[in-house]
Simulated scan of single mutants.
Amino acid sequence: MGLRIRGVVLPERVERVFRTDGEVLREDPAPGSGEFAVDGGWLLPGLVDVHTHPGTEGLADPFDDAVFRRHLAEHRDAGVLLVRTPGTAARVPGWTAHDRALPRVRSAGRWLATPGRFFPGVGRDIGEDGLVAAAVEEATAADGWCKVVGDWRWDEPAVPLELLTATVRAVHAAGGRVAVHCQTAEGSRNAVLAGADSLEHGMHLDPDLLDRMAAQGTALVPTLSVFAAGADRRRADAPSARRDDWLAGWAALPGTVRAAYEAGVTVLAGTDSLPCGTVAAESSWLVRAGLPPEAALGAASWAAREWLGLPGLVDGAPADVVAYDRDPVAHPEVLAHPSRIVLKGQVVR
Rank of each mutant, 00 (worst) to 15 (best):
P293G: 09
A289P: 14
W250G: 04
A248Y: 03
R288T: 15
T85D: 08
A229E: 13
H51S: 05
P254G: 03
R106E: 14
W307M: 06
N190D: 14
I126Q: 00
W152S: 00
A330N: 06
D151M: 00
R69N: 09
A304W: 07
A336Y: 09
R233L: 13
H75D: 14
D237F: 12
I341Q: 10
P157A: 04
G290R: 07
F118N: 02
V347H: 12
E282W: 11
A173W: 09
E12T: 15
E35K: 14
R305S: 06
H98W: 15
A219R: 13
F227H: 15
S339L: 05
V168A: 03
A173T: 04
G32V: 13
A319K: 07
V267D: 09
F118E: 01
A252K: 06
L209A: 02
P293A: 12
T167K: 02
S33C: 07
R242G: 01
T266N: 12
P318C: 10
R106C: 14
P120M: 01
P338F: 09
A259P: 04
A317P: 06
T223I: 01
G345S: 08
V9E: 12
A89M: 02
A185K: 10
R212P: 02
D320K: 13
R26G: 05
K147I: 01
G230C: 04
L161A: 04
D21C: 12
S198R: 15
H75K: 08
G55F: 11
E27V: 05
A319H: 10
D272C: 03
R349P: 03
P103V: 07
L112Y: 05
A299T: 10
G230A: 09
P31M: 11
W111A: 03
G316D: 07
A101F: 03
Y324N: 14
L310V: 09
A101M: 01
A170M: 10
L335C: 09
T20G: 10
D64T: 12
W95V: 01
V105C: 01
